[in-house]
């Protein structure tokens, strides 16, 4: 028995220049905000950008960007709709607002299916919004996609930092490129994140202050782009990509 979908995935991504998973061990540290708004900033700058939300239990990118009322087009595969210049794919097109009670094997199969049937076309960068943890989704994208890179998000919380270090350690061990570590929701100037990752020899991309009004901008990209969070992230993104 052979799974034919596995052989087609890298062909589907052959015209995508960079594939970056936005990851981080803990939940609630802003991975989806960073993934979505990174995609938005790059799109505004004229880059051809795709955004794939692989967090099946808690898909959030569409909520952050206020994406609704769009659906992929079917044409020898499925073509993600383009919103704010971003080609956006998510399980929400198929799951709606319903809970997705998927076990590991189902998560893997759904990821393989999405990667096998989505026609991204030519992109400068595909951003993947990853679920928390170092489970099925991360292991699958590493297993299935050549050229994966990871952008790791953490906060200065000891709990988040410890989990982040585990992920960095695993990626280093597997030889997977890490774009760098981004500290989010900074509440104090003094932070140990940079020191904690020093011995991994992974770049520190920067820090974003905790933005108390960011929550009020969610769902409205114009307001988002005016937020302190987006302005700080934009600087970091443009330093990295332009």
């Amino acid at each position: 028995m052979m799974d034919p979908r596995l052989g087609i995935i890298n062909k589907r991504l052959e015209n995508v220049k960079r594939i970056i998973a936005v990851s981080g061990g803990k939940g609630g540290i802003g991975k989806s905000s960073i993934a979505s708004i990174t995609a938005l900033c790059l799109s505004k700058k004229g880059y051809k950008v795709g955004l794939l939300d692989l967090d099946f239990s808690g898909p959030s990118s569409h909520i952050i960007l206020g994406i609704e009322g769009v659906y992929p087009e079917e044409e020898k595969g499925i073509i993600p709709p383009e919103v704010y210049g971003i080609r956006f794919m998510s399980i929400i097109y198929f799951a709606g607002n319903n809970p997705s009670p998927l076990r590991g094997n189902d998560v893997s199969n759904a990821i393989v299916e999405l990667l096998a049937i989505t026609l991204w076309g030519s992109l400068d960068v595909l951003i993947m919004d990853m679920p928390p943890g170092i489970g099925d989704a991360i292991l699958d994208v590493i297993r299935l996609i050549k050229r994966m890179e990871f952008l790791i998000v953490t906060t200065q919380s000891k709990v988040a930092t410890e989990v982040m270090k585990k992920e960095v350690k695993m990626l280093k061990e597997l030889g997977i490129p890490i774009v760098g570590v981004l500290e989010n929701m900074r509440i104090r100037e003094l932070s140990s994140v940079e020191k904690e990752i020093e011995h991994f020899k992974v770049p520190m991309l920067g820090a974003i202050d905790f933005d108390t009004i960011f929550e009020d901008t969610i769902g409205d990209v114009d307001k988002i782009l005016e937020s302190g969070f987006a302005k700080q992230l934009q600087k970091i993104v443009y330093n990295q990509f332009t």
């Binding site: 499925i78 399980i91 097109y93 198929f94 799951a95 709606g96 319903n98 809970p99 997705s100 009670p101 998927l102 189902d106 998560v107 199969n109 759904a110 299916e113 999405l114 049937i117």
Partner: peptide
């Protein structure tokens, strides 16, 4: 939806 992603059968 199940046709596209059979795992959404769980939904």
């Amino acid at each position: 939806a199940i046709h596209f992603i059979p795992e959404v059968a769980h939904i």
